[in-house]
């Protein structure tokens, strides 16, 4: 099906893009379009104007600044997969990105687009949450920083105002941490029924720090804090991991839909958390 007609504009600065959004509440941002185009084709949305960010140079690319990885919102999944700095400073991002969509989708889809779309079954929101990333947004009033924990508000809803654009994402260095993105989906291209992003930092033989975030276990990505507390401070052997993973579904509100019943998702969360932690802790 063909989308409803809209105007199209391709500004070359963030300020110009923001100005279009500020002037027209029905205007929408077009990044890689890999979530938006299917939505437009099914006529589930009918924006007045699409603001294509392709030509905004400052939104593209990856750099390292002040010991943090900075990923431009328009950086594609394929670019992230081939980026040496991502592999070195935040390999969890690369691991999860490899499971996004399919090859064609990864060529066009962007890091910032996936985060702003905020699908609770999307892979990158949980990863950003596990990494305690900081979202840098630009609006008519200038730039502001939003911690990942505050960014994902609800199903397809972020803390971005309608006239704000996600410009870049700052990711603390996790070089040397064990990591794993453990995803369960039923077939090729399918969304995660449940997935687990895990990071473990070992020191002196024990677990010094644990981060676990869950995909598709609520209307937004959620941290499994009970798991983190249970594992940190232990020696990280398989007994400690199994015990910690048993808390994975605590405080979650998993969706109950055609892809999985809520109790099945709760079970998956525990099993996948155990697997993810086993890999991340090197147990």
């Amino acid at each position: 099906m063909i989308p409803v007609a809209f105007e199209y504009t391709r500004p070359s600065t963030v300020e110009d893009a923001v100005a279009v959004l500020a002037a027209d509440p029905d205007a929408k941002v077009l990044a890689g379009g890999q979530s938006l185009l299917p939505v437009l084709r099914l006529r589930l949305a009918a924006p007045s104007t699409l603001v294509d960010l392709r030509d905004v140079e400052s939104l593209h690319g990856v750099r390292v600044a002040d010991g943090e990885l900075v990923i431009g919102a328009m950086t594609t999944h394929a670019e992230i997969l081939h980026d040496r700095r991502v592999a070195e400073h935040a390999p969890l991002i690369a691991a999860a990105t490899a499971t996004v969509g399919d090859r064609q989708v990864r060529h066009l889809g962007t890091f910032g687009g996936s985060l702003s779309h905020a699908d609770p079954a999307g892979d990158l929101p949980a990863v950003a949450l596990a990494l305690s990333a900081t979202m840098v947004a630009v609006g008519p009033g200038g730039r502001r920083e939003i911690p990942a924990a505050d960014f994902f508000v609800d199903y397809l809803t972020t803390a971005l105002a309608p006239d704000e654009i996600l410009a870049e994402v700052r990711v603390p260095d996790t070089a040397g941490w064990g990591y794993r993105y453990e995803k369960f989906s039923r077939m090729a291209q399918a969304w995660a029924v449940v997935a687990v992003a895990a990071l473990v930092r070992r020191a002196d033989g024990g677990v010094a720090d644990t981060r676990v975030a869950l995909t598709s276990m609520a209307s937004r990505p959620v941290r499994a804090t009970a798991v983190e507390q249970a594992l940190t401070g232990t020696d990280g052997d398989s007994g400690a991991i199994t015990a910690a993973a048993g808390h994975a579904d605590e405080g979650t509100e998993p969706p109950d839909d055609v892809n999985g019943a809520a109790d099945y998702r709760a079970h998956l969360a525990r099993v996948l958390t155990r697997r993810a932690l086993t890999a991340a802790a090197g147990a």
Binding site: M1, Y8, G33, Q34, R41, R103, Q104, V105, H107, L108
Partner: peptide, 27 residues
């Protein structure tokens, strides 16, 4: 398809495979 799943429409844009039903011609 109508859902950008099947890949039948795959073409190369600047040498990279993309689904031409999931991309506007203006892009």
């Amino acid at each position: 398809c109508d859902t950008s799943n099947c890949g039948a429409c795959t073409v190369l844009v600047d040498g990279r495979a993309v689904k031409s039903c999931a991309l506007l011609a203006v892009q």
